[in-house]
Amino acid sequence: MSNPFLKVENLKKTFPGPRGEPPLTVFENVNFGVEKGEFICVIGHSGCGKSTILNVMAGLDDATDGYVFMDGKEIKGTSLDRGVIFQNHSLLPWKSALSNVIFAVKARWPGWSRDKIRAHAMKYIEMVGLQGAEHRRPSQLSGGMRQRVGIARAFAIEPKLLLMDEPFGALDALTRGTIQDELLDIWSKTNQTVFMITHDVDEAILLSDRILLMTNGPNAQVAEAVEVDIPRPRTRETLIKHDQYYQIRNHLVDFLVRRSKELSGKVTDTQTVRVGGADEGSASAGNDDSRQAAAGGS
Protein backbone atom coordinates (compact mmCIF):
# COMPACT_ATOMS: atom_id res chain seq x y z
CA MET A 1 0.00 0.00 0.00
CA SER A 2 2.88 2.35 -0.79
CA ASN A 3 1.21 4.51 -3.39
CA PRO A 4 -1.87 2.90 -4.83
CA PHE A 5 -4.15 4.51 -7.39
CA LEU A 6 -6.76 5.21 -4.76
CA LYS A 7 -5.82 5.68 -1.14
CA VAL A 8 -8.15 6.04 1.81
CA GLU A 9 -6.45 7.32 4.96
CA ASN A 10 -7.83 7.33 8.50
CA LEU A 11 -11.32 8.04 7.31
CA LYS A 12 -13.80 8.81 10.08
CA LYS A 13 -17.42 9.89 10.14
CA THR A 14 -19.15 11.27 13.20
CA PHE A 15 -22.76 12.32 13.48
CA PRO A 16 -23.83 14.73 16.21
CA GLY A 17 -25.61 12.90 19.01
CA PRO A 18 -29.24 13.63 19.80
CA ARG A 19 -29.69 16.26 22.53
CA GLY A 20 -26.80 16.15 24.98
CA GLU A 21 -25.69 12.66 24.08
CA PRO A 22 -22.13 12.19 22.84
CA PRO A 23 -21.62 12.23 19.07
CA LEU A 24 -21.91 8.93 17.25
CA THR A 25 -18.86 7.69 15.37
CA VAL A 26 -20.10 5.46 12.58
CA PHE A 27 -16.68 4.37 11.34
CA GLU A 28 -13.12 5.34 12.08
CA ASN A 29 -9.58 4.41 11.25
CA VAL A 30 -10.56 3.23 7.79
CA ASN A 31 -7.45 2.64 5.67
CA PHE A 32 -7.23 0.86 2.36
CA GLY A 33 -5.88 1.23 -1.12
CA VAL A 34 -7.22 0.28 -4.52
CA GLU A 35 -4.96 -0.50 -7.46
CA LYS A 36 -5.81 0.49 -11.00
CA GLY A 37 -8.05 -2.07 -12.66
CA GLU A 38 -8.89 -3.75 -9.38
CA PHE A 39 -12.39 -4.86 -8.43
CA ILE A 40 -13.02 -4.29 -4.73
CA CYS A 41 -16.12 -5.28 -2.81
CA VAL A 42 -17.06 -4.14 0.68
CA ILE A 43 -19.18 -6.31 2.91
CA GLY A 44 -20.54 -5.36 6.28
CA HIS A 45 -23.75 -5.18 8.24
CA SER A 46 -26.18 -2.32 7.81
CA GLY A 47 -25.12 0.73 9.77
CA CYS A 48 -21.39 0.18 9.47
CA GLY A 49 -21.08 3.16 7.17
CA LYS A 50 -20.30 1.43 3.87
CA SER A 51 -22.52 3.78 1.92
CA THR A 52 -21.06 6.80 3.67
CA ILE A 53 -17.55 5.70 2.69
CA LEU A 54 -18.71 5.33 -0.89
CA ASN A 55 -20.40 8.73 -0.83
CA VAL A 56 -17.24 10.32 0.53
CA MET A 57 -15.29 8.71 -2.29
CA ALA A 58 -17.86 9.99 -4.76
CA GLY A 59 -17.66 13.48 -3.26
CA LEU A 60 -21.33 13.51 -2.30
CA ASP A 61 -20.58 13.45 1.43
CA ASP A 62 -17.81 14.81 3.63
CA ALA A 63 -15.82 12.77 6.09
CA THR A 64 -15.33 14.11 9.60
CA ASP A 65 -11.67 13.23 9.46
CA GLY A 66 -9.23 11.56 7.13
CA TYR A 67 -8.52 11.77 3.43
CA VAL A 68 -9.20 10.06 0.17
CA PHE A 69 -6.59 10.43 -2.56
CA MET A 70 -7.02 9.45 -6.15
CA ASP A 71 -4.05 9.65 -8.52
CA GLY A 72 -2.19 11.42 -5.72
CA LYS A 73 -4.78 14.21 -5.45
CA GLU A 74 -7.19 14.64 -2.60
CA ILE A 75 -10.85 14.14 -3.45
CA LYS A 76 -12.92 17.27 -2.99
CA GLY A 77 -16.44 17.30 -4.37
CA THR A 78 -17.82 15.24 -7.20
CA SER A 79 -16.02 14.61 -10.45
CA LEU A 80 -16.66 12.94 -13.78
CA ASP A 81 -13.58 10.85 -12.99
CA ARG A 82 -15.64 9.01 -10.43
CA GLY A 83 -18.81 7.41 -11.75
CA VAL A 84 -21.52 6.23 -9.39
CA ILE A 85 -24.16 3.54 -9.81
CA PHE A 86 -26.86 3.98 -7.20
CA GLN A 87 -28.97 1.25 -5.68
CA ASN A 88 -32.19 2.50 -7.27
CA HIS A 89 -31.17 3.06 -10.88
CA SER A 90 -31.58 6.89 -10.61
CA LEU A 91 -32.39 7.28 -14.28
CA LEU A 92 -34.12 10.43 -15.45
CA PRO A 93 -37.67 9.05 -15.81
CA TRP A 94 -38.65 11.40 -18.65
CA LYS A 95 -35.77 10.30 -20.88
CA SER A 96 -35.41 7.10 -22.85
CA ALA A 97 -32.71 4.58 -21.99
CA LEU A 98 -30.49 5.88 -24.78
CA SER A 99 -31.13 9.53 -23.90
CA ASN A 100 -30.14 8.81 -20.31
CA VAL A 101 -26.78 7.49 -21.48
CA ILE A 102 -26.42 10.34 -24.00
CA PHE A 103 -27.13 12.82 -21.20
CA ALA A 104 -24.12 11.53 -19.27
CA VAL A 105 -21.86 11.25 -22.33
CA LYS A 106 -22.71 14.83 -23.30
CA ALA A 107 -21.76 16.02 -19.82
CA ARG A 108 -18.47 14.14 -20.03
CA TRP A 109 -17.43 15.29 -23.51
CA PRO A 110 -19.31 18.52 -24.25
CA GLY A 111 -17.23 19.12 -27.38
CA TRP A 112 -18.23 15.92 -29.15
CA SER A 113 -20.51 15.98 -32.16
CA ARG A 114 -24.06 14.75 -31.81
CA ASP A 115 -23.35 11.66 -33.91
CA LYS A 116 -20.25 10.76 -31.97
CA ILE A 117 -22.10 11.08 -28.65
CA ARG A 118 -24.93 8.94 -29.93
CA ALA A 119 -22.64 6.26 -31.32
CA HIS A 120 -20.67 6.15 -28.09
CA ALA A 121 -23.83 5.85 -26.00
CA MET A 122 -25.24 3.19 -28.29
CA LYS A 123 -22.05 1.16 -27.92
CA TYR A 124 -22.66 0.91 -24.18
CA ILE A 125 -26.38 0.25 -24.61
CA GLU A 126 -25.39 -2.71 -26.77
CA MET A 127 -22.78 -3.78 -24.26
CA VAL A 128 -25.50 -4.28 -21.64
CA GLY A 129 -27.71 -5.98 -24.23
CA LEU A 130 -30.42 -3.34 -24.44
CA GLN A 131 -30.38 -2.75 -28.19
CA GLY A 132 -33.99 -2.73 -29.37
CA ALA A 133 -35.17 -1.30 -26.04
CA GLU A 134 -33.09 1.88 -26.18
CA HIS A 135 -36.04 4.14 -26.92
CA ARG A 136 -38.09 2.94 -23.98
CA ARG A 137 -38.44 5.04 -20.89
CA PRO A 138 -37.37 3.66 -17.51
CA SER A 139 -41.00 3.05 -16.53
CA GLN A 140 -41.34 0.76 -19.54
CA LEU A 141 -38.29 -1.28 -18.57
CA SER A 142 -38.03 -4.08 -16.03
CA GLY A 143 -36.00 -3.57 -12.86
CA GLY A 144 -33.09 -5.49 -14.32
CA MET A 145 -33.12 -3.52 -17.55
CA ARG A 146 -33.19 -0.22 -15.65
CA GLN A 147 -30.15 -1.24 -13.67
CA ARG A 148 -28.47 -2.22 -16.96
CA VAL A 149 -29.08 1.30 -18.26
CA GLY A 150 -27.53 2.62 -15.05
CA ILE A 151 -24.50 0.41 -15.65
CA ALA A 152 -24.28 1.53 -19.29
CA ARG A 153 -24.48 5.16 -18.21
CA ALA A 154 -21.75 4.76 -15.60
CA PHE A 155 -19.38 2.84 -17.90
CA ALA A 156 -20.07 5.15 -20.85
CA ILE A 157 -18.42 8.14 -19.18
CA GLU A 158 -15.31 5.96 -18.70
CA PRO A 159 -14.52 7.18 -15.19
CA LYS A 160 -11.20 6.41 -13.56
CA LEU A 161 -13.07 4.89 -10.65
CA LEU A 162 -16.50 3.36 -10.67
CA LEU A 163 -18.44 3.32 -7.41
CA MET A 164 -21.41 1.01 -6.97
CA ASP A 165 -23.72 1.14 -3.99
CA GLU A 166 -25.47 -2.22 -3.82
CA PRO A 167 -26.36 -1.98 -7.48
CA PHE A 168 -28.25 -5.26 -7.53
CA GLY A 169 -29.82 -5.06 -4.08
CA ALA A 170 -33.30 -4.41 -5.44
CA LEU A 171 -33.24 -7.17 -8.07
CA ASP A 172 -34.50 -10.72 -7.83
CA ALA A 173 -31.90 -13.49 -7.58
CA LEU A 174 -32.21 -14.72 -11.16
CA THR A 175 -31.88 -11.28 -12.75
CA ARG A 176 -29.07 -10.46 -10.37
CA GLY A 177 -27.12 -13.50 -11.51
CA THR A 178 -27.45 -12.59 -15.17
CA ILE A 179 -26.40 -9.00 -14.62
CA GLN A 180 -23.44 -10.09 -12.49
CA ASP A 181 -22.15 -12.15 -15.41
CA GLU A 182 -22.69 -9.22 -17.74
CA LEU A 183 -20.95 -6.85 -15.37
CA LEU A 184 -17.93 -9.20 -15.20
CA ASP A 185 -17.87 -9.30 -18.97
CA ILE A 186 -17.97 -5.50 -19.36
CA TRP A 187 -15.44 -5.09 -16.59
CA SER A 188 -12.96 -7.45 -18.24
CA LYS A 189 -13.37 -5.57 -21.53
CA THR A 190 -12.90 -2.10 -20.04
CA ASN A 191 -10.35 -2.67 -17.27
CA GLN A 192 -12.39 -0.36 -15.09
CA THR A 193 -11.41 0.16 -11.45
CA VAL A 194 -14.45 -0.70 -9.38
CA PHE A 195 -15.38 -0.16 -5.75
CA MET A 196 -18.62 -1.86 -4.89
CA ILE A 197 -20.80 -2.32 -1.83
CA THR A 198 -22.76 -5.51 -1.50
CA HIS A 199 -24.57 -7.68 1.02
CA ASP A 200 -24.26 -10.73 -1.13
CA VAL A 201 -21.31 -12.97 -0.25
CA ASP A 202 -21.49 -14.95 -3.51
CA GLU A 203 -21.63 -11.78 -5.53
CA ALA A 204 -18.52 -10.49 -3.79
CA ILE A 205 -16.56 -13.69 -4.45
CA LEU A 206 -17.65 -13.82 -8.06
CA LEU A 207 -16.69 -10.23 -8.83
CA SER A 208 -13.84 -9.14 -6.59
CA ASP A 209 -10.10 -9.25 -6.51
CA ARG A 210 -10.27 -8.28 -2.87
CA ILE A 211 -13.12 -8.13 -0.38
CA LEU A 212 -13.03 -5.61 2.45
CA LEU A 213 -14.80 -6.82 5.56
CA MET A 214 -16.17 -4.23 7.94
CA THR A 215 -16.97 -4.77 11.61
CA ASN A 216 -20.31 -3.69 12.96
CA GLY A 217 -21.03 -0.05 13.66
CA PRO A 218 -20.81 2.19 15.55
CA ASN A 219 -17.03 2.59 15.47
CA ALA A 220 -16.86 0.27 12.50
CA GLN A 221 -13.51 -0.45 10.90
CA VAL A 222 -12.19 -2.44 7.99
CA ALA A 223 -11.02 -5.59 9.77
CA GLU A 224 -9.81 -7.68 6.88
CA ALA A 225 -9.04 -7.51 3.22
CA VAL A 226 -9.68 -10.98 1.84
CA GLU A 227 -7.82 -11.76 -1.37
CA VAL A 228 -9.84 -13.73 -3.86
CA ASP A 229 -7.35 -15.46 -6.11
CA ILE A 230 -9.74 -17.69 -7.96
CA PRO A 231 -8.54 -17.39 -11.56
CA ARG A 232 -10.47 -15.32 -14.07
CA PRO A 233 -12.47 -15.39 -16.21
CA ARG A 234 -15.02 -16.50 -13.66
CA THR A 235 -18.63 -17.40 -14.25
CA ARG A 236 -21.21 -18.36 -11.70
CA GLU A 237 -21.22 -21.84 -13.17
CA THR A 238 -17.50 -22.61 -12.82
CA LEU A 239 -17.01 -20.62 -9.64
CA ILE A 240 -18.93 -22.97 -7.37
CA LYS A 241 -16.82 -25.91 -8.55
CA HIS A 242 -13.60 -24.22 -7.53
CA ASP A 243 -11.94 -25.57 -4.36
CA GLN A 244 -11.35 -22.19 -2.81
CA TYR A 245 -14.88 -20.98 -3.33
CA TYR A 246 -16.37 -22.63 -0.23
CA GLN A 247 -13.37 -21.82 1.90
CA ILE A 248 -13.66 -18.16 1.07
CA ARG A 249 -17.42 -18.25 1.37
CA ASN A 250 -17.25 -19.86 4.80
CA HIS A 251 -14.67 -17.38 5.90
CA LEU A 252 -16.89 -14.48 4.84
CA VAL A 253 -20.05 -15.90 6.37
CA ASP A 254 -18.22 -16.67 9.58
CA PHE A 255 -17.04 -13.09 9.67
CA LEU A 256 -20.50 -11.71 9.08
CA VAL A 257 -22.37 -13.86 11.58
CA ARG A 258 -19.80 -13.99 14.35
CA ARG A 259 -16.58 -12.06 14.09
CA SER A 260 -17.98 -8.77 12.79
CA LYS A 261 -19.71 -8.46 16.16
CA GLU A 262 -16.81 -9.71 18.26
CA LEU A 263 -14.31 -7.45 16.54
CA SER A 264 -16.56 -4.41 16.66
CA GLY A 265 -14.54 -1.46 17.93
CA LYS A 266 -11.41 -3.58 18.57
CA VAL A 267 -9.48 -3.75 15.33
CA THR A 268 -6.64 -1.36 14.79
CA ASP A 269 -5.05 -2.54 11.54
CA THR A 270 -6.60 -4.07 8.46
CA GLN A 271 -5.34 -7.66 8.08
CA THR A 272 -4.73 -8.96 4.62
CA VAL A 273 -6.10 -12.49 4.52
CA ARG A 274 -5.64 -15.18 1.94
CA VAL A 275 -8.09 -18.00 2.51
CA GLY A 276 -6.99 -21.50 1.53
CA GLY A 277 -3.42 -22.79 1.30
CA ALA A 278 -1.35 -21.71 4.33
CA ASP A 279 -4.27 -20.16 6.16
CA GLU A 280 -6.46 -23.18 5.72
CA GLY A 281 -5.97 -24.49 9.27
CA SER A 282 -7.04 -21.29 10.95
CA ALA A 283 -9.80 -20.53 8.49
CA SER A 284 -11.34 -23.97 8.73
CA ALA A 285 -11.62 -23.63 12.52
CA GLY A 286 -14.73 -21.56 12.06
CA ASN A 287 -15.97 -23.45 9.07
CA ASP A 288 -18.40 -25.81 10.73
CA ASP A 289 -20.06 -23.04 12.69
CA SER A 290 -20.41 -20.79 9.73
CA ARG A 291 -21.67 -23.47 7.44
CA GLN A 292 -24.46 -24.17 9.87
CA ALA A 293 -25.14 -20.54 10.37
CA ALA A 294 -25.32 -19.99 6.65
CA ALA A 295 -27.64 -22.94 6.24
CA GLY A 296 -29.79 -21.71 9.09
CA GLY A 297 -29.92 -18.23 7.63
CA SER A 298 -30.96 -19.24 4.14
Partner: peptide, 27 residues
Protein backbone atom coordinates in the same frame (compact mmCIF):
# COMPACT_ATOMS: atom_id res chain seq x y z
CA UNK B 1 -37.10 16.54 -6.77
CA UNK B 2 -35.52 13.24 -5.77
CA UNK B 3 -32.13 13.47 -4.10
CA UNK B 4 -30.89 10.69 -6.38
CA UNK B 5 -31.47 12.75 -9.50
CA UNK B 6 -29.63 15.68 -7.96
CA UNK B 7 -26.77 13.34 -7.06
CA UNK B 8 -26.65 12.17 -10.67
CA UNK B 9 -26.40 15.79 -11.79
CA UNK B 10 -23.65 16.35 -9.22
CA UNK B 11 -21.59 13.34 -10.27
CA UNK B 12 -21.91 14.50 -13.89
CA UNK B 13 -20.49 17.88 -12.78
CA UNK B 14 -23.42 19.85 -14.19
CA UNK B 15 -23.42 23.56 -13.37
CA UNK B 16 -26.25 24.76 -11.09
CA UNK B 17 -27.97 26.44 -14.05
CA UNK B 18 -27.67 23.33 -16.20
CA UNK B 19 -28.96 21.20 -13.33
CA UNK B 20 -31.94 23.52 -12.94
CA UNK B 21 -32.80 23.37 -16.64
CA UNK B 22 -32.02 19.77 -17.55
CA UNK B 23 -32.86 17.95 -14.32
CA UNK B 24 -35.00 19.99 -11.93
CA UNK B 25 -37.26 21.65 -14.49
CA UNK B 26 -38.38 18.44 -16.24
CA UNK B 27 -38.65 16.66 -12.89
Amino acid sequence: VKKDLLNVAKTLELSPLKTAITVILPA
